[in-house]
């Protein structure tokens, strides 16, 4: 049995310069040759059964724990989401209510009613005061005060009574007599108007055309709408 391999081996070694490797890779270029060597037979390691069970159990445990954690965090997220949603809903509701309220209050009709409630009346003739020299632009006239509804609660008799009692109305309200206030305002405005006219003549501004750019006016806030009353 052992003779034949020997024979074969000896056949190979007939050329002493050639190693086994060189023989195997004969005809292959030197640079491409793999560096082959003999290895010892593979050593099979037997894993112990106990170790395997532990690893599987460990993986299972980690998996379960992971699922638990994910579920917990999802539930937590859901709670937070629900909470924020209801908070958002509440804020949105508040905002909507307030928006509606503001819009209703800032409507011109509501503003007018409030202004009238405070005893204000619309001005019938626009006029402006130019601040640097006090020139009055436009012809101010006292507004007609017949529309004041505030003292409506009081009859004329009541107003007169209070006036007799010596109560001087400081502001529209109790004892305020619109007719008297109008007359007074009228008088004041007329005196003021006369004064202004004189003033204008002295400065000589009025006789010349005054060119006022509306832009400049608003930018420098030189002019302001004035309530004549």
């Amino acid at each position: 049995m052992s003779a034949a391999p020997k024979l074969e081996f000896s056949e190979i070694t007939e050329t002493p310069e050639q190693t086994v490797t060189e023989y195997a890779t004969k005809g292959v270029r030197k640079s491409m040759r793999a560096n082959l060597r003999l290895v010892s037979p593979m050593r099979v390691q037997k894993a112990s059964n106990g170790m395997f069970v532990l690893i599987v159990l460990g993986a299972l445990g980690i998996g379960m724990l992971g699922i638990l954690l994910i579920n917990t965090s999802l539930a937590q997220g859901a709670f937070t989401l629900g909470e924020l949603r209801s908070q958002y809903g509440e804020l949105a509701r508040t905002e909507a209510t307030l928006t509606e309220e503001v819009a209703a209050l800032s409507a011109p009709e509501a503003l007018e009613n409030q202004a009238r409630g405070l005893g204000m009346v619309p001005s019938s003739s626009p006029a402006f005061i130019r601040i640097p020299d006090g020139t009055v632009l436009g012809k101010p006239k006292p507004a007609k005060g017949a529309a004041i509804p505030t003292p409506a609660d009081l009859t004329a008799g009541e107003g007169a009574e209070m006036a007799v009692a010596g109560e001087q109305p400081g502001a529209p309200g109790v004892g305020y007599d619109p007719a008297a206030a109008d007359a007074q305002a009228n008088e004041e405005a007329q005196t003021a108007g006369a004064g202004q006219k004189e003033n204008k003549k002295v400065t000589g501004v009025w006789s010349e055309p005054i060119v006022i750019e509306a832009k400049v006016v608003s930018e420098n806030a030189l002019l302001d709408a004035v309530s004549v009353q």
Partner: peptide
């Protein structure tokens, strides 16, 4: 009259 006041348009002052 109202719009002139509201938009702050002063009279030009020319005759």
């Amino acid at each position: 009259s109202y719009a002139l006041g509201a938009l702050e348009i002063p009279p030009t002052g020319a005759k």
